[in-house]
Simulated assay, not measured.
Amino acid sequence: MPLTDLPLEELRRYRAEVPEPDGFDAFWETTLSAARAAADGPAEYRRVEGTPLRSVEVHDVRFPGWAGQPVAAWLILPRGTAPGAGLPAVITYLGYNNGRGRPIEHLVWASAGYAHLVVDSRGQGDATPDPD
């Protein structure tokens, strides 16, 4: 099953026809600077013990998001691999209306040898509340 709708060479050449809005770079520079300033520390990794999963290791990751509010993610790695081991990675943002779910729902990439970070949606997953 293909993961994209274009061949790799066409994806490399692809340029969207949508023009960049005025102030786009300034908006993101300001937004990211504010998020970094509100962060109270680096990402935290905690290995999840006692899962029935035998081919992967699961880490509960927390990192500061907007206004320093914590965002949760699963880092799912092939068994025997430590965070930061230099594996190719896939990052999944599930989109609004979804949370990270349970690790058993996300085994494909780690089983294929990739690091897989599955990021909760702010205010949607039970581990990433939206206090506002």
Rank of each mutant, 00 (worst) to 15 (best):
Y96L: 14
S111I: 01
G125K: 09
V118G: 02
R122I: 13
V61G: 01
G50Q: 09
D60F: 02
A115I: 01
A37Y: 07
G84S: 11
P129F: 11
A43E: 10
Y114M: 10
V71F: 03
P21Y: 12
D132A: 10
A115L: 08
P131H: 12
P7H: 02
E20T: 15
P21I: 15
F63T: 03
T128P: 06
G84Y: 04
S55T: 14
R102N: 11
S111M: 08
T128H: 03
W66A: 13
I104C: 07
P129S: 12
S55P: 05
E49M: 05
N98R: 13
N98F: 13
S55D: 15
R54Y: 06
E9Q: 11
L8Q: 12
L77S: 01
V90I: 10
T30C: 14
E105W: 05
E10T: 07
R62E: 09
G125T: 07
T81V: 13
G101Y: 03
A72Y: 09
V71Q: 02
P88C: 11
G84D: 06
R100N: 05
S111R: 14
A35W: 09
R100T: 01
H59N: 03
L11R: 13
R46Q: 11
V61W: 04
A35P: 03
P42G: 08
P70K: 00
Q124S: 12
D22F: 06
L77Q: 02
W74P: 02
E29C: 07
G86A: 07
G65S: 13
R47Q: 13
Q124L: 02
G50Y: 06
A35D: 13
Y114A: 01
W74L: 03
D120G: 02
R100W: 02
A112F: 05
W66H: 12
R12H: 08
E10D: 12
H106W: 02
G68P: 07
D40Q: 14
A38H: 11
P70E: 04
G113W: 04
W66G: 05
V108Y: 07
V56L: 04
G123E: 04
A16T: 11
L94G: 07
V119G: 01
